[in-house]
Nucleic acid binder design. Structure first.
Lengths: 230, 230
DNA sequence: CGCAGCCTTATGCCATGGTAGTATCTCACT
DNA sequence: AGTGAGATACTACCATGGCATAAGGCTGCG
């Protein structure tokens, strides 16, 4: 049994290893496979993933920039606890960025953007009715990413990705059910309609409303499970 | 003569080397000591700085995330050319972020924030009258940073820093003179007054106006010096 | 029993060696 | 002269070894 099996994930040796490790660790942190405050050592991760410490270290540095892990020099690295203030700041910054991008998208939407968003919402309806949150998440990402990149602002998506990790951990905790997935899809549809009809005010407002969903649950979660919060 | 002297900069071996190399390279790129499209090899930089390739590599990865360098696997790394579209996107995103942060700052400004901003503007007046742009830049950074951190949003400053590098290279090209430094300081003072009097609308508008300065010069610069643009 | 000091163990940080991939240059061949 | 193949010289990427530092346990002293 190869050491990689211990983690339950595999890496393709032909693709850049550092990037793969980064993506893998990020998914495991957001999916709470690695719990907040859990220790993560370079050496042990390298062993379990079957790679050397170098790409693991580089992945941890990138994750530290997103504050998904906290690195303490010469002492150790841990999965960062969920800090309420930090989640709220992430939400605030994401809303500022994505409201601006969505507004611009609605000013001059390309035909390709309209087409892509429309298809994604169809897919989301299916995934939501199937009631499988793990299938829905990639489609949710794709929707927001498409707005950014389809409006000629690829960097905005990179910035959004950098802050949304904090929010995604909270979303994962609240375990969205089928009804919630359908609600999110409805909000996506509202954003889409505003873009399609070239109504910037309505598009911005719809996106702001959509992004405030996380705030509804965070405070009760913080009191329910104090162990994983800061 | 130590190899570090060749670059004209020194590193302190007691402090984290990776972070120092990152800061040093970033300043040299923004200050156009390293010209756009210039090749940067891990090995040569390590040699000239008197450190190993590892911290240099880590610094280049971070710079690549800000698109200040372009890394081509197995081929080489170059200082990224100045891409007009990218500068404009950076300006757009920074304006979205900082407008939102400044608005919030004006809603509930702390006494410490008022005090710190006031002092910084005094310092800026002196530096502007002295007419030394290289002394002014750190004070400009400090002003924007203070608004972010003094409003309890430390992460916003990190995001802003990540995008402003692209803008700073353009600003450096336009070589601000004394009159321009005084203009910037006046704009800072206007932002400050709006925060102090708790006028969010005015604060946001003043910040947006301030951040649009770069756009005035970029197009003429692009046609004047095509060699360093994409 | 409590506390100060050593010592063991672990960590992340930096240095360096080896590898696979790419571009360029040389030279034989047409 | 022009072209294509092979050798060569680079690159960034990954692996691994040695280092200083920080934390926790142990021991001996008060």
């Amino acid at each position: 049994m190869p050491p990689t099996a211990a983690a339950g994930y595999e890496l393709d040796p032909k693709l850049p290893i550092g990037a793969q490790v980064y993506g893998l660790l990020k998914r495991m942190i957001i999916g709470l496979v690695f719990k907040p405050n859990e220790a993560l050592s370079e050496k042990e991760l390298a062993l379990r993933l079957g790679v050397s410490r170098t790409p693991v270290r580089e992945a941890l540095i990138r994750l530290a920039e997103e504050t998904l892990v906290d690195v303490f020099p010469q002492r150790g690295t841990i999965v960062s606890p969920i800090r309420v203030a930090e989640v709220m700041e992430a939400q605030f910054l994401r809303e500022a960025l994505e409201a601006a991008v969505t507004r611009r998208a609605a000013e001059q939407p390309s035909a390709a953007l309209i087409r892509d968003l429309s298809r994604l919402i169809d897919d989301q309806h299916h995934a939501a009715n199937a009631g499988r949150p793990e299938d829905y998440m990639p489609l949710d990402d794709a929707f927001h990413r498409t707005i950014s990149e389809g409006t000629g602002m690829p960097r905005s998506w990179r910035l959004i990705q950098g802050v949304k990790g904090q929010m995604d951990r909270v979303r994962f905790l609240s375990l969205p059910n089928k009804a919630h997935l359908l609600l999110l899809t409805e909000q996506h549809a509202e954003i889409f309609k505003a873009i399609e009809t070239q109504d910037p005010d309505r598009a911005e407002a719809a996106m702001r409303h959509h992004l405030k969903e996380v705030l509804k649950t965070i405070h009760e979660l913080a009191s329910e499970m104090p162990a994983i919060f800061a």
